[in-house]
Amino acid sequence: MRRIVCFFLTTLFASHLFAQNTPLEIGQPAPEISLPQPDGTPFSLSSLQGKLVLIDFWATWCAPCVEEQPELKVLYDKYQKANPGKFEIVGVSLDKSKENWVKAIDRFKIDWIQVSDLMFWKSPVAKDYRIEELPFNILMDEQGTIIAINLHGKKLSDFISNYVR
């Protein structure tokens, strides 16, 4: 009996470890994100249920992420402003410096939701989403399920365009 319990516990422990390290997959629920916005207002990802949400993990120290911001602005202007109830973007910054983060928000005229705990790679959100490098993004459907991972450029805009059609 003891052997069976031992085996069961080991399996449980191993599967837990495995789950912690494997990347997120399409079909899984998007982990909750509860982080402050630049003005300190709290934000929760779950408040956006019912919308298609692009979660963009970025930082001002990540050159390709910064280059991508104008493209996101195009998507935001096209899909969110036309259909405010259907689409949203959430920028999750892995910056350390609030000054740099806020400056970039102004510079790129980012008017979508921005959140950060300003903890750089130590941010728990990096662990929750198993992020190994930036840029990284997730598309979450109306039920909070991950429907696409790390799409950029034309692939990203095509995916959103097909989805909202």
């Binding site: 790679w121 130590k122 990096a126 992020i131 190994e132 490098e133």
Partner: peptide, 9 residues
């Protein structure tokens, strides 16, 4: 090689 997250943290 990759970044400070993967190669240090």
């Amino acid at each position: 090689r990759k970044n400070i997250k993967v190669d240090w943290l």
